[in-house]
Amino acid sequence: MSQGFRESVSERVSSAISDHGEGAFGRWLLLAPALIVLLALLYLPTLFILRESVLTDAGTSLAYYGQIVADAYYQSVAVRTVKVALVVTVIDFALGFPLAYAAVRGGRLLGGVIVIATLAPLSVDLVIRTYGWYILLGRGGLVTNVLVVLGVGSQSHQPQLLFNTTGIIIGLVQVLLPFMVFPIMTILHTIPREYEEAARNLGANRFGVFLRILLPLSLPGIAAGMLLVFTNSIAAYVTPAILGGSTQTLATKITGIFTTSNDWGLGSALAMLLVVVAVLVIVGYQRAMENAGGSVGGTGGEH
């Protein structure tokens, strides 16, 4: 019975797709499952948060937003969040581009090692990985001890790498590095090695080759990587919560407001701020890509 029902449904769907696949209806049909999931799990909750953020005792108003804007503390948290995200993005680019380049150009063995080394940490749960950093960066941890040996700080005044923005940045840089490496690797694969050789032959040194050939040609991949790292970074919760201590970012602050002070209105307003920043960055990225003439746009387009 149910077998026959399933078959008839699947038949109808596939015939609908083959009939309409080329048209607008067919496209929407193919998108429908994903859209339904996003609608139910992302857009509706977001709308709910939006409603919470503007519903006050005095009716609909922007009072919570006003409260945030007027409060220097929230401003400092917002600024810190964006600053951390920017620094993480820049560091991940500085680390990720050479890694991606070495993986693509450095031969099969090196490439494989880099890909595995970049991917492997993703198989370890985020919380566990972050506690790993907690141990490494804490007082008497490996990193602090090495730094002391190298002459940074002393045994009694160890460098403070935990419970501050430094800790958050170190953690996020590591967690988000793959999101920078893989889009750049993908695009570097499309750039023939001969472009670099031609540029060197025409008198460009390695930096010149990077600046004038590799950078412009890999811009779509770099932008995609930066977008992924930045958006993930401003929204990150686990890493700042564990490594930041009392140093708050928007995500940890929002959680705190919801769970401890139970102020849903204020928390929702802060959450909406985060959404607005992310949407602005994504829209900016897509504009830039359209202007550059590239038809990229896919990556991160549906946040």
Binding site: Y195, E197, N201, G203
Partner: peptide, 15 residues
């Protein structure tokens, strides 16, 4: 980049 040779590639390698 300091050898001052001019290379023409089979694929041309135009930027």
């Amino acid at each position: 980049h300091k050898r001052n040779t001019g290379m023409v590639f089979q694929s041309y390698a135009l930027f």
